[in-house]
Computed example of a mutant assay.
Amino acid sequence: MKYLVTGAAGFIGSAVVEKLNASGAFVVGIDNLNDYYDVSLKHARLRRIENSNFKFVDLDISDRKAVSELFEREMFDCVIHLAAQAGVRYSLENPHAYADSNLVGHLNILEGCRNIKVKHLIYASSSSVYGLNAKVPFSTGDSVDHPVSLYAATKKSNELMAHSYSHLYDIPTSGLRFFTVYGAWGRPDMAPFIFTKKILEGDTIDINNNGDMWRDFTHIDDIVQGIVRVVDVIPTRNPSWTVENGNPASSSAPYAVYNIGHGSPISLMDFVRAIEDELGIEAKKNFREMQPGDVYQTYADTTDLFKATGYQPKVSIEEGVAEFVQWYRTYYNK
């Protein structure tokens, strides 16, 4: 089977490529290698996954002509679409980057899938879509109509766009709502990376909402396990499904949406303490109010994903933090 993985130089994308290659699959990976964060880290990830079963193409998914030509040339069986402009806070600074990548880029990928009749499209959504939802755990049956950031709004839009293509063109699509992914080779704009870096350098870390926040931290190994399992669970049409009685994460079209998280939220202060314990350093802390676009708690109900694939997260927060800190200290010689 021939795969396309978009965002192949990214945190999740590079890990997915590595897993697929290990199973013997051939993967074409694309990424535009933008400078949203340190490009050298992206290049390092690519060097790490370089092998004969992987071909990398430097390509921006917002380039309609280039994406179309790639699909026509390669004729993929399965597409794992992870490329996106990430980050909640950055969407306040540069909203047009989100429109270009997350909306135009997503449409270009959908069009590519339509033109070659791809067997299955798996794409990245986000726990951010739950927005103002205060009911926990977050279920795929919950309303996601009130996002609190543009980033979240684009991810909700991705799900709607995918459904329309599933309905109109019979393209099987599966959206994955990722919950706070962390681990080795992670993104520098995320809390584990920021906290570890600042603590080691003696800088003060910002603690939002005065520490009263909860996140469903999910280790990259568990995320990759879930993605790869979903590949073989191809949605089919369900003629008995109705809007009035059906789960919004399924459809009469070949369409599905799943939560992919650990299912056990950790308080922000406990997460900070886990990093402090692993480093053997107490952090200097600046407690501050909730920041724009932030949510109080994320908590995944992964029942649907378990029923469909047998997905069960295995990496504890202690194991995950220890692995991340060890990688960080080795990679940055700290």
Rank of each mutant, 00 (worst) to 15 (best):
Y255S: 02
P147C: 14
S91G: 12
D31K: 06
N94L: 08
W185L: 11
V27M: 05
H106I: 00
L59Q: 01
N21P: 00
N108V: 03
T303D: 13
E50F: 04
F26L: 12
E278I: 07
I227D: 03
G10C: 09
M269I: 11
F54T: 06
N209H: 14
D170A: 00
P172D: 13
I116W: 00
G320H: 07
D60G: 10
N245R: 15
T154K: 08
D100G: 08
R73L: 03
G211T: 07
G131T: 09
S164T: 14
V144E: 14
Y130T: 01
R237G: 04
L41N: 07
F26Q: 12
L305C: 13
D206F: 05
T236A: 04
S40Y: 13
V230P: 00
S157A: 15
D145E: 10
V129N: 08
D232F: 10
T6P: 00
A283N: 11
V181M: 02
G211A: 06
N247Q: 05
R64K: 14
K307W: 05
D301E: 08
S127G: 08
K55L: 11
F179S: 06
K155T: 15
T204K: 13
G141W: 10
S166G: 01
N102L: 01
Q312P: 04
Q326C: 04
G112I: 09
I260E: 07
V88L: 02
N102Y: 02
T180M: 02
L121K: 03
G261Y: 02
G112T: 10
N102W: 05
H96E: 06
T302H: 01
D206R: 15
D270G: 15
R48Y: 09
N208F: 03
Y36W: 15
S164W: 05
Y36E: 12
A22K: 11
Q312N: 11
E282K: 15
Y165C: 01
T298A: 02
A86P: 15
S251C: 05
I80N: 00
P313A: 03
Q291M: 10
L92C: 04
L132C: 07
E111I: 06
D35Y: 11
S240M: 03
P235S: 07
R45K: 12
L200T: 08
L20Q: 02
L279P: 15
D304L: 09
R89Q: 12
G24N: 04
Y258D: 03
L176G: 02
A191M: 14
L103F: 01
E159D: 11
S126Q: 02
M190I: 11
I317V: 15
H120A: 08
V181C: 13
N333I: 01
E72P: 00
I266Q: 11
D58N: 15
E318R: 09
G263L: 06
N209A: 14
F71Y: 10
L103A: 13
I49L: 04
G29V: 06
I220S: 01
D221N: 02
P254D: 01
Y258M: 10
T330M: 07
G7H: 03
L279Y: 13
D216Q: 08
D142H: 15
R89Y: 14
T298N: 01
A15Q: 13
I227G: 07
P292L: 08
I61Y: 07
Y332Q: 10
T204Q: 11
S62P: 00
S23R: 07
T196Y: 04
S128E: 11
V224Y: 03
Y311N: 08
D142V: 11
E50P: 07
E278Q: 12
S126W: 00
K285L: 12
V27T: 09
I220Y: 06
